[in-house]
Write a protein that binds this DNA or RNA. Structure first.
Lengths: 246, 246
DNA sequence: CATCCTTGTATTGTCAACAATAATCAGTTA
DNA sequence: TAACTGATTATTGTTGACAATACAAGGATG
């Protein structure tokens, strides 16, 4: 249900040694496969085939597909099986308008509840961002660090239900970020600057500024991704509307 | 996944004749049982027992429990089974702060996208509200009509992902509404007036007013429920914080 | 020639049996 | 007596087989 960060920043001394179910493993492996492009959008995901590939039975695979549908990576239709989701411009608009509503609340709460440990973790991710930049980072690295920074904001907000909503958007946003990176190479400085500003406003616990900054940041991100979309024109079918956010 | 309204207002001429799975039926029957109080908060929900009671195998029951966990009605712990969720004041605060963030967006979008059919459906629910009031309605009736009005707003917003988030909150809100009704008998006029104002602002497509009204409406609702909570003091364990929204 | 119906097949939906696990409760030991 | 240890048991996790369904292909019919 809850993807573990790849490089743990400020990890606690002992982890509670949680045992995961087969379905959880399948979720992670399938998610990675989809995000890595091993399965293309629209491709059929047959339960039996996946069970054979992953060396489990169909039960855990079925559960995993339900979870991945919640995360927006998979579409399941009754008696017709699952397919990898195609994310259209309409989906982009839905994801980012919802994200804006959620993340405004996240910022307000983080401004109220975040601890010094939270701020330190954010700074660590920003530092990792700098390090990555200095050695020619891959697009995946950039997208993951970007998401990790925002994930820390959601965690600092101390709101389980909101965090669950965010978890259901995260993978879709990852896909959109990769798309943005391909078309737009100079976004990185903008992102780094925006993150620095967000952290500064959070530290100042300035609720008005925090809300303003996240709105600007996300609207900017949305616009840049939308450019990539109209440039490459993924959904070739006539899908005209949805340029404006909200 | 998607609860059908009990009394369909402004129903379309032909329904697409969707065939439901056993798991979907189990979800509905279990949800109703929990909301009707057939299962008390904290009570264990054993898969085998439920399967026997509902005359299905454990498979569909398992799927249903996962869905109900997403709706916040059930807590599933690995190898320890499922229990009916206990909703604390902390949960109330989470649900209503998240609801406020979502519903502000819903109102903004509904103000932009709602059609005359949407408005007519809202008026029909308001009329049903009046009819119900005139003949001494049950608390369940009131809560259902209240939820149905807000559900129409979310539908009018034309935003599938947001609607899914709302669907995951709806049953929890229903529980809170029942709680409010018990302790506070004169809220009905307030609610009716607020709904009328919301509809009028939507018709005027006044985005500023719409956002202001929903915030007032939901903060008021939250405060009234919180009163009931502190009056009856459900979570008897020392849970001090969370009086303020956001 | 198009359309409808039948049949075959691949795939998901459901089930019941088996394996793994966590809680319970004696029994033992310090 | 209290704490630890080990078997017992109830319950979930997982599996493979069976049933139901939707799609596709082919033939019958107008």
């Amino acid at each position: 249900m809850d993807a573990e960060p790849l490089l743990s920043v400020a990890s606690p001394p002992l982890t509670p040694a949680v045992k995961r179910s087969l379905a959880d493993d399948v979720v992670d492996r399938l998610r990675d496969a989809i995000l890595h492009g091993s399965f293309k959008p629209g491709e059929a995901l047959r339960e039996e085939q996946l069970a054979t590939m992953l060396d489990v039975s169909r039960g855990p695979v079925r559960e995993a597909l339900v979870q991945l549908e919640r995360e927006g990576l998979v579409v399941v239709r009754r008696h017709r099986g699952a397919t990898v989701a195609r994310l259209s411009r309409g989906d982009l608009e839905e994801v980012y308008s919802l994200r804006l509503a959620l993340e405004r609340l996240a910022m307000l709460r983080a401004a109220r509840y975040a601890t010094d440990e939270d701020f330190a973790a954010m700074e660590a991710v920003m530092a990792a961002f700098d390090v990555a930049l200095s050695r020619g980072p891959s697009e995946k690295e950039i997208a993951e660090l970007d998401l990790r920074f925002h994930d820390l904001i959601y965690r600092a907000a101390r709101h389980q239900r909101m965090y669950d909503c965010w978890s259901n958007l995260r993978s879709q946003i990852y896909i959109f970020l990769l798309l943005r990176n391909v078309a737009n190479p100079d976004f990185r400085d903008v992102t780094i600057k925006a993150h620095a500003d967000l952290l500064e406003a959070l530290r100042a616990r300035d609720e008005v500024l925090v809300a303003t900054l996240i709105e600007e940041h996300l609207r900017g991100a949305y616009d840049r991704i939308l450019e990539s979309y109209t440039a490459t024109e993924h959904a070739s079918s006539g899908e005209a509307p949805s340029p404006t956010l909200i």
